[in-house]
Simulated scan of single mutants.
Amino acid sequence: MRAALRHTRDSEAMITGLAALTLHRFASAPPLPALDRIDVLVPRTARRLRSSAEVRIVRAQDLPVPLALDGVRVAPVARALADAVSGLTDAGLVRGLLTEAVRGGHCEPGTVVRELNRARLLNRPHVVDAVDSLLAEGRSIAEERLYEMVREFGLPDPMWNVDLRLPGGPHLGGLDAYWPDQAVALELDTRAPRQDDDALWSEYTRKREHLERLGITVVHITPRKLREAMDQQATVIRTALMAASDRQPAAYVVVLPR
């Protein structure tokens, strides 16, 4: 650790990888004495720094803004995760680290996946499997927060997790919540930035535009907004519900459980 600290005296260097996660208090990360080497993230231009028996130099074109933990410059969780996962083959450890990042409230799934994608790690089967579990975990947490928001802020109870269809017509899409009397739909935007993101966003956009042409107001909420500004999101939904009386009646749609 002393050798790593010497390297971080460089104006931009910071601890990353498993050591950084340990400093972030990850229970699933090994203790510092158990690590063979400590990763230090440095600018690509820092050529004078070299890896050693105790320190692995990780060079990058763009560095994140570091955090100060225990007097040490440390990479933020998402970046530290990507740097750690790049050197891991233990599927269980990878899954545990990613799950703890989300369950512990360190960062949102999309932020983690963005860093993994940037590091070109989404072509590794054990990483893809862990990401799938991560996204499922993130959605579950976001849904719980959504239920909490409706309860805590006294919003009318919606119909949860439904599909909409035109009578005798095509499927209009699934929704996380729907208020049929006000024709207000809510969708959790839990997309992760992966290679097919553009196509998925186009699908979201088409569904939203179609529903709005039918007179249905669609509210998109991200897990991050639910976590950081739940009161503001409740206000957005309440405003949409109250505005229903000023709009033209929506087209009749069939609501089915999803």
Rank of each mutant, 00 (worst) to 15 (best):
P66M: 13
R56Q: 09
P66N: 11
I57L: 12
V65E: 13
V58N: 02
R47P: 02
A60H: 07
P76K: 10
E54C: 01
R44C: 06
V42M: 04
G71N: 06
I57D: 01
R59C: 04
L63C: 10
E54V: 07
V55H: 02
L69P: 02
A60P: 00
R50Y: 01
P66G: 09
D70E: 12
L63E: 03
P43F: 10
R44W: 09
S51A: 11
D70Y: 09
G71I: 04
E54T: 11
L67M: 13
P66I: 11
P64L: 07
R59M: 07
R50I: 08
A60S: 15
G71M: 07
R59I: 06
V74H: 01
P43D: 09
T45D: 12
R73T: 06
V74C: 03
P66E: 11
A60W: 04
G71Q: 06
D70Q: 09
Q61N: 00
R48W: 13
L69T: 06
R56T: 12
R59G: 06
A46V: 01
R59F: 10
A53V: 05
A75V: 05
L67H: 14
V58W: 05
R73N: 03
R50N: 02
Q61V: 09
S52M: 03
V58F: 04
A46H: 03
P76M: 14
D62I: 13
L67T: 03
R48E: 13
A75Y: 01
P76Q: 12
R59H: 09
T45R: 15
R73S: 15
R59L: 07
V65W: 00
P43S: 13
V65S: 11
R59W: 07
D62N: 08
D62Q: 12
R44M: 10
D70R: 14
P76E: 09
A68Q: 06
P43N: 10
A68T: 09
V74Y: 00
L49S: 02
Q61Y: 00
L69Y: 04
P64S: 08
G71F: 07
T45M: 09
G71T: 04
D62M: 07
R50L: 11
R44K: 11
V55E: 02
P64D: 04
P76C: 13
